[in-house]
Design a binder for these strands. Structure first.
Lengths: 253, 253
DNA sequence: TCACAATCAATCAAAAATAATCACAAACAA
DNA sequence: TTGTTTGTGATTATTTTTGATTGATTGTGA
């Protein structure tokens, strides 16, 4: 049997079973443990499966408890909520807007629904820039150091780059929203970038589903009143007294 | 049996079976292993099958890479030459180098072969940045306007960004090399970016297969003596008198 | 906490597969 | 005819894959 063939079959097998042990795969394919482990290692690198201690699991079976899941794994969470939020956010873009799009999965989802081709777009997400380009939009990217896990652009060069511009609208992701800590994110470098972006935007929108409320991450990048929150369901009135809250479910009715 | 005829049959056979070994094809077509392998190599270059260790698989069951450049058709030309050039170029990178990687398909190919994880990398290609990140390399990206077709970053912000840095090595692509017009490219904006990159690099390497020689495109971005050409076969001695020419075929001996 | 078992990564040698080279034969052109 | 090109098979050195071994790491239960 071809090496490639066996690896393809292993992926199918794992996707069907959702989780398998090395011993199980040895039995199934008649190969040694070393070979199976090597296969799992390359398939893991190719992001076709997820290698775990003792075996492997399919990609869709994501682990929700990781500190900061990789872009692909994280994207699976709260799909419907994100979709509604993203669609509404995209509809806010007008002609002649100069739009900043923050890195992150929520804002990436939003790009799918952007229809305005007359606005100008700028982002610090590598994947975001590519998606914008594929839609034929007028796209710019901020320069700087690239963070491996989230594929976001960060660092002093990035902040300096942002400081030259003045956006009419900024669409931001966040990891936590709380009354006393404001908008927070786990990475200090990303927080600095977000902070600068919000500072240079006429209006900043925070895209966040209900699960983000009450959470606090390591670093604050903006205070609650500085941004307009776009979320999917009712939240504490404490937030609405300080900023405009667009409840997407209500909007759709 | 005609060579061409046999190759067509091999493609059909592989498409039907999805994956076959060389031994299987020897049996089926009564040819030697050498002949079968030659056929597979040809068919692989023609993108009609995918050659793997031990045999071949059909094109259809390839993993759909979500981030492949749409230029795949164009990229099929001069595969072996580009591969040899790319490998050699990648081998030039040392620890502590600050490497600029120009946008374009040749330099994208080169990233595959980069092994040095201690060097720092910076690029104006969006896909390039993503590939570098996926390899776990220390990656930066230049900011600026994004050009839709080539997914390259260009414009005044890009040039200003480059001007802040000093690269130890720059790896550049080109559309034409000629004695009187120097290195040329069709797009004015891209030319300006390339010009600035060469200006800020201690050594600039031009990656170009033999087909680029004698060609002239719209805009010149550097003169012949300013860069070191890495190419695949002998070219006019007029070039070698003005710069170092690394003949990859000779290098391999 | 500890010990123990299971699992893993690194290494090595053997086997399999490959690429490069050579020589031969058939097809072709002058 | 003669010389050249093209395809083929055999040979050989190199590369890839594989399974076994070993020492390190991880998870489990006392």
């Amino acid at each position: 049997m071809l090496t490639k063939e066996r690896q393809d079959l292993i992926v199918s097998y794992i996707n069907e079973k959702n989780a398998v042990t090395v011993a199980e795969l040895m039995e199934e394919f008649g190969a040694s443990a070393a070979t199976i482990r090597r296969d799992l290692a390359v398939l893991h690198d190719e992001k076709r499966i997820i290698k775990v201690f003792g075996g492997a699991t399919s990609i869709s079976d994501t682990d929700v408890n990781t500190f900061e899941p990789s872009v692909s794994a994280k994207a699976a969470l709260n799909i419907h909520e994100k979709e509604a939020i993203s669609k509404y956010a995209a509809s806010l873009i007008n002609d002649d807007d100069f739009v900043y799009i923050d890195s992150g999965t929520t804002t990436l989802e939003m790009i799918k629904y952007i229809t305005n081709t007359r606005a100008k777009y700028i982002t610090n997400g590598i994947v975001h820039a590519k998606k914008l380009l594929e839609k034929g939009l007028n796209t710019m990217i901020i320069g700087g150091r690239c963070k491996p896990t989230t594929e976001a652009i960060i660092g002093p060069d990035c902040i300096e780059g942002i400081s030259k511009y003045h956006f009419t609208k900024a669409f931001m992701g966040t990891n936590g929203i709380s009354l006393h800590a404001g908008y927070t994110t786990p990475d200090v470098d990303e927080a600095l970038v977000k902070q600068e972006a919000v500072k240079h935007a006429y209006v900043s929108y925070i895209l966040a589903d209900h699960s983000k409320f009450g959470k606090v991450s390591s670093v604050t990048f903006a205070e609650i009143p500085n941004c307009c929150i776009i979320t999917d369901s009712e939240v504490s009135k404490n937030y609405s007294s300080k900023t405009i809250i667009k409840n997407v479910n209500e909007e759709k009715k």
